[in-house]
Design a protein around this nucleic acid. Sequence first.
DNA 1: CTACATGCAAATGCTTTGCAACCTA
DNA 2: TAGGTTGCAAAGCATTTGCATGTAG
Lengths: 137, 137
Amino acid sequence: MLQEKNRRITKQRQVILEELRKLNTHPSADEIYKVVRRRLPRISLGTVYRNLEVLAQMGEIQKLELSGSLKRYDWNTNKHYHIRCARCNRVDDVPIAPLNQLEDELYEATVYEIIGHNLEFIGLCPECSKKSRTIDH
Amino acid sequence: MLQEKNRRITKQRQVILEELRKLNTHPSADEIYKVVRRRLPRISLGTVYRNLEVLAQMGEIQKLELSGSLKRYDWNTNKHYHIRCARCNRVDDVPIAPLNQLEDELYEATVYEIIGHNLEFIGLCPECSKKSRTIDH
DNA sequence: CTACATGCAAATGCTTTGCAACCTA
DNA sequence: TAGGTTGCAAAGCATTTGCATGTAG
């Protein structure tokens, strides 16, 4: 929790960060693993998980916990919102500015000490929307 | 996905719904299992999971997929938002009205067909906030 | 009677962890 | 060379599933 160890720059950590920064797909750990393995064939999935955690703690990347089951990672550390496809779980950024006033609004109305908020839209991406129209109903 | 079978009213289904309706804690499947077992000692956790899924499909309850790992269930099927304690994962309702205009705002700005949105606040509940002040730092 | 539902146990999927060997600073 | 890091395998945890049996309608 409150550690700030002496972090080292290892090849694995470096490559994971580089590859994540090339992707706009908000990949899962496994997807990052698949990509990184092209450059480091002997890397293990455990190492990918550990490094993503470390990089997130270092503030180099952002860990997304969206409503779909698995965690995703984002090189963009600025606060922003996402939309997730209900069918294929594709995730995209959404052009809506952070609603900071929401937390102020809640401030007097809750017994909680507010830390932040997540806003996530659910929808159908163009591909799945198309399939949905032809296959279902 | 699109099934609408002939649902039966079984003792298990009935008790799960009754017990969930007594709780304002947004319990996980396991927590519901613990409570229901007091009345039906031979019920299995699998049955609890299956029935929660069925009840959600029937629109009797709501399945919450908050950012914490495990799924939670809510007897309140009205659209409303939650706040989750970052330490103990306690979940409470939040007195903020649904922001319906958000989806309209996004409508022209995304290629997705919008289905809905989730808004979740993260904070520290009073108990954890107190602990945080005494133990840490 | 006949689907649907249950209990049980095994399987699944994602993520974490223990440990000995390995490297970075 | 000390302590963080890795690969590997096993464990962990929430959830799902196969199957024989049970039961509501």
